[in-house]
Nucleic acid binder design. Structure first.
Length: 272
DNA sequence: CGCCAGGGTAGAC
DNA sequence: GTCTACCATGGC
């Protein structure tokens, strides 16, 4: 589902094909979603030239792995219910929340558009609480985010024109260096929204998989904590992300995508 | 039963 | 500013 259009998408060799009953031509929309204007060959060549391990990842995944330009609101909600959840669980959460949206049909495939922030507010926090989205704080965080977006306090359009640090700062609602407002968006979730929806190519999300991959592949990478239960402190997170930006340079965010897919069954592009 | 999953928060120092 | 215990749930 993209911008209210239910689309069936598949890959035929190096060609992207799709089917939809939407009257309009969706080439522009899909081109933006898959970032087809990015110089992908140049990017992967550049990454390959860094080291052997990356070259191997590029060889394996270059024909399938892309960075996406997702819808900022949908992306925000998706990552609000991502903490301590698997990709499959997050995908299920997004599909479940989508039942609050408009019904769509294509070739006997019945799905839903992702609900707008207004539709989420109309549904109310009680409706979200019945969806088993994970932690009990998640429905409240989603409602709070919906209010920020609806009232214009959180303006994604404007954020895409701002520098990376500023974007993360605003997403997290950090008002001082020491105090952060609890809105469900920490450093990692903010990075994901910034990179996957707001064109902030400087973002380098560090989840457990990325952290493990880096520690595994590079001896000079800041080490992961030994006995932590999965979590990185803000400092540890920043140290690793900064190391990666410095090490991988301009296309670090694409390296991030490759690392995430390392030793993982390839899945169809996420989204709804 | 155990462990793991695209982490964030309150509260402690 | 930095570090910890705790949080809900599904899959395996």
């Amino acid at each position: 589902m993209l911008s209210g259009n239910l689309i069936h998408i598949w890959q035929d060799g190096n060609v992207l094909k799709y089917k939809t009953d939407s009257g309009s031509n969706l080439n522009v929309l899909l081109s933006s979603y898959f970032r087809l204007c990015d110089p992908i060959d140049k990017i992967y060549d550049c990454i390959s030239s860094h080291d052997k391990k990356l070259a191997k990842l590029v060889e394996k995944y270059h024909s399938g792995v892309r960075l996406l330009r997702q819808d900022p609101w949908e992306c925000t909600v998706a990552y609000l219910c991502s903490p301590n959840a698997s990709v499959d669980k997050i995908r299920l959460n997004v599909e479940t929340i989508a039942t609050l949206g408009r019904k769509l049909e294509l070739c006997d495939d019945v799905r839903h558009s992702f609900p707008t922030c207004e539709e989420v507010l109309d549904a109310g926090v009680e409706a979200l609480e019945e969806l088993s989205l994970g932690f009990s704080r998640t429905p409240g965080n989603i409602i709070a985010a919906a209010k920020r977006v609806c009232c214009g306090d959180l303006d994604f359009e404007e954020l895409t024109r701002q520098p990376y640090n500023n974007v993360v700062w605003q997403l997290m609602e950090k008002r001082s260096a020491s105090r952060k407002v609890a809105n469900g968006i920490g450093d990692k979730v903010a990075d994901c929204i910034a990179l996957f929806a707001l064109d902030e190519m400087e973002a380098f999300p560090v989840d457990r998989h990325i952290g493990r991959a880096l520690a595994d592949m590079y001896d000079d990478c800041p080490p992961l904590p030994e006995n932590s239960k999965g979590g990185l402190t803000y400092k540890q997170y920043r140290d690793i992300a900064d190391w990666a930006r410095k090490r991988f340079g301009e296309y670090a965010c694409y390296v991030n995508q490759l690392l995430f897919h390392r030793q993982r069954p390839q899945r169809p592009p996420s989204g709804c």
